[in-house]
């Protein structure tokens, strides 16, 4: 009996000792575990910022002369048609202010309140720009008489450039322009935005040369109009790029040598894509670094060099088109 009591007391004492040790351990380990959990959580929340802090994209070539306004960082592969690619998150942005257009009439004197954010990257083959700007409405149609599209453009020319090169280049300083048009993108995304998109109840009896094709009282789809009948679509017939119902890319590659001189380049290999979300446009525009139309004046983009660049945004809802636009000043671009 007495032995039994002794054993029980000993067991109890031993248990109490273990419990005391465990409490002491808790005091040390619980804060460590909680702290680690908190750290993990914060790290997960701010991992992008931390990553940028630890390993920012570094230029591979030292910039000559003064620091450029904008750097096109070298990356493995540029997402030339994806404005939402996580790759863009690694690239720092530059704020570029848009100005009024007060030189060539008609002028646009209103100036957007906020600057645009610009990122640039290249992979040795393609150079791409990501433009982001606030716009309350996405204007992706230019069918009705008073409808105007949203658009943006990047202009690249040599450095140093005369001040007047800002106005779409000069005779001696041709400017290569990448021009993204919101309606062109929808034409690719959803198919050509035809007459019926703006006028859904349109009906037709006949169109010359297409008499047999109208059976339901509805016009034929423009995209289906055969070649011979396109003579009735004058702009399409003469090859005007604005008038072509089928498009390969929403970005037009243009050469310009001053106001009123923009010309579509023969090789249309510029690409890009835009995304409007929650009142913001995010548009990527890209061209091949090696000019495909060098004889027409297209610029070669070479690593380690500096170029003059300018950016322009057209707000369709404000009636912007052509000269009615908000261009930036001429900035410098360094190709890493």
């Amino acid at each position: 009996m007495a032995d039994g009591k002794k054993r029980r007391r000993a067991i109890l004492q031993m248990g109490a000792g273990v419990a005391r040790s465990a409490r002491a351990l808790d005091k040390v380990f619980l804060p460590i575990v909680a702290g680690a959990a908190l750290f993990t959580m914060l790290a997960a929340m701010f991992h992008k910022q931390i990553q940028d802090l630890i390993s920012p994209p570094k230029p591979t070539v030292e910039q000559p002369g003064p620091r450029a306004d904008l750097t096109a960082y070298m990356v493995d592969k540029v997402p030339v048609t994806d404005p939402d690619s996580p790759m863009w998150d690694k690239i720092p942005f530059t704020r570029i202010s848009l100005a009024d257009q007060s030189v060539i009439k008609p002028l646009k004197l209103e100036v957007p309140e906020e600057p645009i954010k610009v990122k640039a990257a290249h992979d040795g083959e393609w150079i791409a720009f990501l433009l982001e700007w606030p716009d309350r409405t996405a204007d992706t149609r230019a069918i009705k008489v008073a409808e105007f599209r949203d658009a943006c453009a990047v202009m690249i020319t040599s450095y140093p450039a005369p001040a007047e090169a800002r106005y779409m280049g000069t005779q001696n300083t041709p400017a290569t322009i990448l021009h993204w048009k919101a309606d062109w993108q929808i034409d690719i995304e959803e198919g050509f935005q035809d007459l019926e998109k703006a006028f859904p109840n349109v009906s037709a009896d006949m169109y010359p040369l297409l008499k047999e094709s109208i059976t339901s009282g509805k016009p034929p789809k423009t995209i289906d109009i055969p070649g011979f009948a396109r003579i009735r679509l004058a702009g399409t017939w003469v090859g005007n790029p604005i008038s072509q119902p089928s498009k390969d890319a929403p970005v037009e590659k243009i050469i310009a040598k001053g106001p009123a001189t923009i010309t579509t380049l023969p090789t249309q290999d510029a690409v890009g894509w835009g995304r409007w979300r929650d009142g913001f446009w995010k548009v990527v525009l890209a061209k091949k670094m090696k000019a495909s139309d060098p004889t027409a004046g297209e610029i070669d983009v070479v690593r380690g060099s500096i170029y003059s660049v300018a950016f322009t945004v057209w707000f369709g809802s404000e009636g912007d088109r052509g000269a009615r636009k908000n261009p930036s000043m001429l900035h410098t671009l360094y190709i890493e």
Binding site: L195, A198, L233, A234, T236, I242, S243, P245
Partner: peptide, 10 residues
């Protein structure tokens, strides 16, 4: 006039 389909003026 603005042509709805060719998106240029005539």
């Amino acid at each position: 006039f603005y042509n709805h389909v060719t998106r240029i003026s005539e």
